[in-house]
Design a protein around this nucleic acid. Structure first.
Lengths: 350, 350
DNA sequence: TGAAATCAATAAAACGTTTCAATTCACGGT
DNA sequence: ACCGTGAATTGAAACGTTTTATTGATTTCA
């Protein structure tokens, strides 16, 4: 079998010729069908069908100056948190007739830069991005090129752009307050790299909660891992197991880490939550289905995506009269088995 | 704060003017730097930097006729199986300088059609697709428009296209053979809609295995759910619980379904695998981290993506001399706790 | 020294749309 | 009978690149 047969792709002029109208009219049928007489419109439409004409988007784009696409740049497509955000984005974007170009940075600044370059070349309508680094340099550059940007999970007052985020500091506090209330006095926080905004804020919230509660500083200890995924969670869990004394609770800055830790504990025969309590972050769907259903700090994932998409589309619709907005959602704690109902500890400590 | 300041995006001619060369030379610097004298090249490069010039990809595309992007159309981005495939695709695509446009159909034929239309308008290099329906009509139409297509998870000898798939029939057999060997006599298969190729093949394999083993037909009963996700799995689980007699084993055509079923069982106090064994399909990372580590039929997820991307890039590189290839991987069974080591049953049946 | 060969740079013609000013046509009102 | 109006259609000029044939300058070699 050999590929690629058929005529060399009919253009608007072939259609015009077949329908015996001018190219302008064909274009009108495509873009403002109401202003062309029904009779000719039908003629054009059948010609289009007959020739199998497909509009050349590049040409359209070149003429109009703007693409019907928005870029979504995330840290990790394999993280269900981001795919849920993506669903939200897709929902409103496609309702507005925009395609979504999904880019994955794997937390790498280089990859991020490459993707942004590509998106800029495509002249996308706007870019939604979870920055891979604290420095917003690349994003500022993009702004200067006139691309609308909405920051996800990063309330960037400084980066001339809108933002949609969740109060990560509060999230950290919620988790730690819960663990403290459950009577824990030796807590480890497993965190991602601190050049990520989320990691820093969640830690700040956690540390703050310990202080506010008047507990000694060494109540909370931080372990930093290179990435927010299950494998790193497993490594962290093994590291904890190797210690002479296990903490009584672990707060993971993300559910993937938590699932990794949990998996190692269960396999090692350490009881969760009796021997060690675990709290995650994001409340991805898999959290509830884990070995021990995972307590987690819930973020409105799809909502984040929808809001961000609305902002970016709104901005490009009236660019001059646009005021940047910073929307901050509040997280909530979902308590499940992994961090509560430890009969043993309750009995001991209370 | 008000948005969108800055000059109106410099083009190649502004660069040319500033560097005191012709536009052709600028283009050469961009595309064949080796054939322009170092001195002028530098002059152009600094001009580019100074003006913050970004190549207009639509114009480039219009001229050259082809985009540097490939489309990846999947049934569900939230399914880790597909995100892993996507990573594989991305890896080889970006090495070849192509962007990946990720589209989500949610198993809807309409959405699939919309996405394909969009991709055709973009004149993408090629499309990798897991069809949402048995009818390959939309894909054939795309082929006729001259777009290279690779079918994922669908060995389409009939659709004039390459394909990369995993032998789903063997996968179904593996799962059922295992359950039969474990002594199960009342098995339920929870399957997706049978217009999906995967669903049909896995079922065929399962049914075949029962026959080959010489067991009565009612050993295996099929339950069909509307989508391959956790929610549907939960619903199926509840439906099973409501029955007067529970099957002794469940084979789910996908891990998300299996996780849903598992969750319901665990919550209801039904012991897995003692009261009911569960086997999933895909072996996503979360399978091993589940409430009870999930047995599953493993597919080489990233490998599928890589191979497919290579095929589509290869095809567009030499379109005339191209022979369609059909690559079929073989799945393997990963046995974990959810379907084995049931001391109780072993004792009884053996 | 002159012709041929090589190398750099240029100018102009595409690519397939959209848009906009101009044109045609038919009709109703005075 | 004429003009003005509005609707439908047209034709041509963009949009920002890449590409190709061409020119101009320099080197090579007989």
């Amino acid at each position: 079998m050999v590929a690629n047969t058929g005529r060399p792709a009919a253009g608007i002029r072939e259609v015009a010729a077949l329908a015996k109208v001018s190219v302008g009219t064909v274009s009108n049928v495509l873009n403002r069908p109401e202003m062309v007489a029904p009779a000719t419109r039908d003629r054009v439409l059948t010609a289009i069908a007959e020739l199998g004409f497909v509009r050349n988007e590049s040409a359209r784009q070149l003429r109009t100056g703007t693409a019907r696409a928005i870029g979504l740049v995330v840290l990790d497509v394999a993280n269900p948190f981001f795919t849920d955000v993506a669903r939200g984005v897709e929902e409103v974007a496609s309702a507005a007739g925009h395609a979504v170009i999904l880019c994955n940075t794997d937390e790498s600044v280089q990859r991020e830069a490459r993707h942004l370059e590509l998106l800029a070349e495509q002249r996308v309508h706007g870019v939604l991005i979870t920055p891979a680094d604290t420095s917003l340099q690349p994003i500022l550059r993009l702004r200067r090129r006139g691309v609308s940007v909405v920051l996800l999970d990063h309330p960037a007052e400084l980066a001339d752009a809108c933002s949609v985020s969740v109060d990560d500091r509060v999230g950290g506090e919620l988790a730690i307050n819960h663990l403290l209330a459950e009577g824990h006095e030796r807590i480890v926080m497993v965190n991602g790299r601190s050049r990520l905004y989320q990691a820093r804020e969640r830690r700040a919230g956690a540390v703050g909660a310990v202080h506010k509660a008047g507990r000694p500083d060494d109540t909370l200890q931080i372990v930093e891992v290179p990435a927010f995924n299950v494998a790193c969670g497993r490594r962290a869990g093994e590291e904890l197991l190797a210690r002479t004394t296990l903490p009584t609770a672990v707060f993971c800055a993300n559910d993937l880490l938590a699932l990794g830790v949990l998996q190692v504990m269960v396999r090692a025969g350490v009881s969760v939550p009796d021997d060690i309590a675990i709290v995650g972050y994001d409340d991805i769907d898999f959290a509830a289905a884990a070995a021990v259903p995972l307590s987690s700090v819930r973020q409105p994932r799809q909502q984040i995506g929808r809001t961000a998409a609305e902002l970016v589309i709104g901005e490009t619709q009236e660019p001059d009269r646009h005021e940047h907005r910073h929307i901050v959602f509040t997280p909530e704690l979902v308590v499940r088995e992994s961090s509560s109902g430890s009969v043993r500890r309750r009995g001991i400590r209370r």
